[in-house]
Nucleic acid binder design. Structure first.
Lengths: 127, 127
DNA sequence: TGACATCTACGAAAGTCTTCGTATATGGTT
DNA sequence: AACCATATACGAAGACTTTCGTAGATGTCA
């Protein structure tokens, strides 16, 4: 029984901040998020409490202002999200997904070179 | 300002069927979906009525059993979903997204070759 | 034409997500 | 010690999603 706890949109925004800061209080997370998207302090607090229950984050409650940390790495979460999208919207066609990414986002020469390297790796493994 | 109506999970499953069949009645959609995921007929009906209101599908009501059609192509929808994921979970890094795709899904030699070709195209455009 | 199978319309329950207000606890400062 | 700024806990409203039951319309066939 995999605990495939897919974060919601609001939760993902909070995780994003936590990944960048490593450890953060509700206040710190709220300060960052509030810039892009005005939102009450207790809204962020409540979300983070829910995320604690869901197991998305863990916290250190030894000080008055609890310190939170993401429980999964950004990498793991991204992997799950991609896997999910691949299933749900692309019927498993990696080809089409990559195609859309390249079309959607202008990609620098460096990035393209990097992607080419990853393909070479994948082809190696295929042998 | 595009009405960026992101389909929900259940709606996406229905769209998937509609894209494959081109045009379909509720009965036909239900038959397909019910195989993978048991679900009442009126559930699918209701969903499709909601999708009509949202503008995700259109229908021809001239016969007793209305005939539905997806309003957006699969391509357009996939593009929006990728764009969305890129924003929300990858902060715009196409590189990381592609990396995860290649890691997540075993990709055939043919597909890899195809992806290489797309990269060549992108590099051409970059010049 | 009348019965039956099948269709649509619609209300509503149950679950989830997002948001915030209010109550209460706590630590530091005077 | 009392005050004040700041924390957490928690309930609950409102929106959205998913699900289905029931009522009523309609086409077909004996």
């Amino acid at each position: 029984m995999t605990k495939h706890n897919k974060p919601t949109e609001a939760e993902l925004e909070i995780l994003d901040v936590l990944w960048r800061l490593e450890r953060a209080t509700v206040r710190e997370v709220h300060d960052v998020i509030n810039e892009r998207k005005p939102m009450g302090y207790t809204t962020v607090l409540k979300l983070m409490q829910i995320m604690l229950e869901k197991g998305l984050v863990e916290r250190d409650s030894s000080s008055k202002a609890h310190v939170y940390r993401a429980k999964q790495t950004q990498n793991e979460t991204q992997k799950n999200l991609v896997s999910d999208l691949l299933d749900k919207a692309f019927r498993g066609s990696a080809l089409r997904l990559v195609q859309h990414v390249l079309e959607t986002k202008p990609t620098s020469a460096d990035e393209l070179a990097e992607i080419r390297r990853m393909i070479a790796d994948a082809e190696e493994k295929n042998k």
